[in-house]
């Protein structure tokens, strides 16, 4: 029955040929975004925070079952139960090493090793920030996942210095990273929608009242101490009907993400909706989800786009070609 229901979702079936270009885009995008973030934020100040800001038990609001979130272990925060906390200089050195690794990865110098190194060092710094700040900054999570994905790329999917780039090489193997990233973003969006039902109820979009938030955001902006917002955007979102429609669209599309994102012909539209959603969150709340936005762009069907451009070019020049696979 489910197979019938999901009949058109051929993405769940066997992988199809994907251009190496798509993996190059993911590699360049992941390294460039990580570089942008690590050049922008200064993590070294975390060394000055009181030690009890990094204790095992985190706020219940963010970590559902476990008093100690998994990142305490996976980002190696637990080592400070055995060794002294690093100084400002040591954290600065870790951040600079991460930046060097990211530069290497971006320019194709030992990209796999660079991705692993950036992932290990970068996740350690981000782990400090998330634990110390009691937050679950989703943009850093997506960023770390993209580095993890690049670290696990198939061998031929990297662009590298000293290796001839073949962006138009077509292979089933290149489908793997694209599929994993799509599956990850799928889970990310779906659980965000599900959490709205679990935490608030199926009527979340009626109670969301983004208009009230927008009015408050504008009025609070009189003081420099408050959160930042884009005044004209919040002014538009303060119209109740408009805010309600936006909330409904976010809610509905997050919940159908597991199906919607896997319709090859529809997924670009859904991805662009989610990219717009992240942009609107930046405008209203000032949270820069650029890694999430970029992940949406990285999942566009580049193989099909290139095939379409190729067909158009051949048609224009009067050359007949065999059909290209569509992704």
């Amino acid at each position: 029955m489910i197979a019938k229901l999901l009949g058109p979702v051929d993405f769940y079936g066997r992988p199809r040929p994907v251009l190496a270009l798509h993996c190059y885009i993911i590699q360049a995008g992941a390294f460039a975004l990580a570089l942008y973030l690590f050049l922008s934020w200064d993590f070294s100040g975390l060394a000055l925070m009181p030690a009890d800001a990094f204790v095992r038990d985190a706020r219940g609001l963010l970590f559902t079952y476990w008093k100690t979130p998994g990142l305490y272990w996976t980002t190696f925060q637990f080592i400070y139960e055995y060794i002294p906390r690093p100084s400002v200089g040591a954290l600065h050195a870790i951040q600079m090493a991460t930046i060097v690794a990211l530069f290497c990865g971006l320019f194709g110098i030992f990209p796999r090793a660079a991705a692993w190194m950036a992932l290990l060092l970068g996740s350690h710094l981000i782990g400090w920030f998330l634990l110390g700040s009691d937050t679950m900054d989703a943009s850093t999570t997506v960023l770390l996942f993209m580095l993890f994905l690049v670290a696990l790329f198939p061998r031929d999917a990297y662009y590298k210095i000293g290796k001839r780039a073949r962006p138009l090489a077509l292979s089933n193997a290149f489908h793997g990273p694209v599929f994993i990233l799509l599956f990850f973003m799928d889970a990310y969006y779906f659980y965000s929608g599900l959490n709205k039902i679990i935490d608030i109820g199926p009527g979340w979009f009626l109670d969301a009242r983004l208009d009230l938030f927008s009015i408050a955001a504008v009025e609070q902006s009189l003081f420099v101490s408050t959160w930042s917002t884009n005044l004209w955007f919040s002014n538009i979102l303060s119209v109740q009907v408009f805010a309600g429609v936006v909330a409904f669209l976010v809610f509905a599309l997050e919940l159908i993400a597991p199906i919607a994102l896997f319709f090859p012909r529809l997924s670009p539209a859904f991805l662009m909706f989610f990219a717009s959603m992240h942009l609107s969150i930046y405008l209203s709340h000032s949270y820069g989800y650029w890694t999430n936005t970029a992940a949406d762009f990285m999942l566009l069907p580049y193989t099909a786009i290139v095939a379409w451009i190729g067909r158009a070019w051949h048609r224009r020049n009067g050359i007949s070609i065999a059909g290209q696979p569509a992704e």
């Binding site: 979130p69 959490n195 609070q220």
Partner: peptide, 22 residues
């Protein structure tokens, strides 16, 4: 719901209904 650094539990749900006037 592990939140292992490279994946978390999804953004929690919250609302602004009942938000007091500034």
């Amino acid at each position: 719901q592990l939140h292992i650094g490279i994946a978390h539990r999804g953004v929690p749900g919250w609302v602004y209904a009942g938000m007091p006037d500034v």
